[in-house]
């Protein structure tokens, strides 16, 4: 087992700001947009992005929600994992809104698939975009691609890529755990 840092917090800080700028370039002051963090690991990132976007756009009323798609996962009863849901908190209508879905690592794409299905049960958004801090682009099992990426990482399927938030309100570090 070998643990190695891929991105330190200075690096991710710049990256997060860049992603926030890209989002505001595309969507202006985010009037018809909503940031939705994916439970459990996308939440901190989504909150951070919301903070940055509020600062950049001066819009203090950007809609924010947290989505749990445990009940839509395709690995229920398929492995050793026990899928216990997290809280779900979307207290606005998503109908005809632009949804910016946020998760920390995009890996097989299966979580995003379940999130898309789950969102479909809340209504019909105008558009759904995907933000991810780390894109493990060679490990995809479904045709899903992100719209905003922090960093593309080449990794093998058995590696573990982790986003670690050492301190509240700081920027995260990205680590990779390999067997060599």
């Amino acid at each position: 087992m070998k643990k190695r840092i891929l991105l330190d917090s200075n690096h991710t800080k710049i990256m997060l700001r860049r992603i926030a700028m890209q989002i505001s370039e595309t969507h202006g002051n985010l009037d018809n947009c909503a940031i939705i963090g994916m439970q459990p690991r996308g939440i901190k990132l989504a909150k951070k992005l919301l903070e940055l976007l509020t600062e950049i756009t001066k819009n203090k009323k950007i809609e924010y929600g947290e989505l749990d798609s445990t009940f839509y996962r395709d690995d229920f009863r398929k492995g050793d994992k026990f899928l216990i849901p997290n809280s779900l908190n979307i207290d606005f209508l998503i109908e005809n809104k632009i949804i910016i879905l946020v998760d920390d690592v995009l890996y097989t794409g299966r979580s995003v698939r379940s999130a898309l299905n789950s969102l479909g049960d809340f209504g019909r958004p105008l558009k759904i975009e995907l933000v991810t801090l780390v894109d493990r682009k060679f490990n995809r099992e479904l045709p899903i691609q992100p719209d905003y990426v922090g960093e593309e990482v080449d990794s093998r399927a058995k590696d573990i890529v982790e986003v670690i938030w050492a301190e509240e309100n700081s920027s995260p570090e990205v680590w990779i755990i390999t067997d060599k």
Binding site: D68, T70, F71, Y72, F76, R77, I84, P85, N86, S87, L88, N117, S118, D121, F122, G123
Partner: peptide, 26 residues
């Protein structure tokens, strides 16, 4: 407690307009 915690999540499911999730489809 685990049943209560899980029930909290299902309560949000049964209070929205599409009250169905696919978990037990098989």
């Amino acid at each position: 407690k685990l049943i209560f915690k899980t029930a909290d999540n299902f309560k949000t499911v049964i209070n929205r307009s599409i009250k169905r999730v696919p978990s037990l489809r098989d």
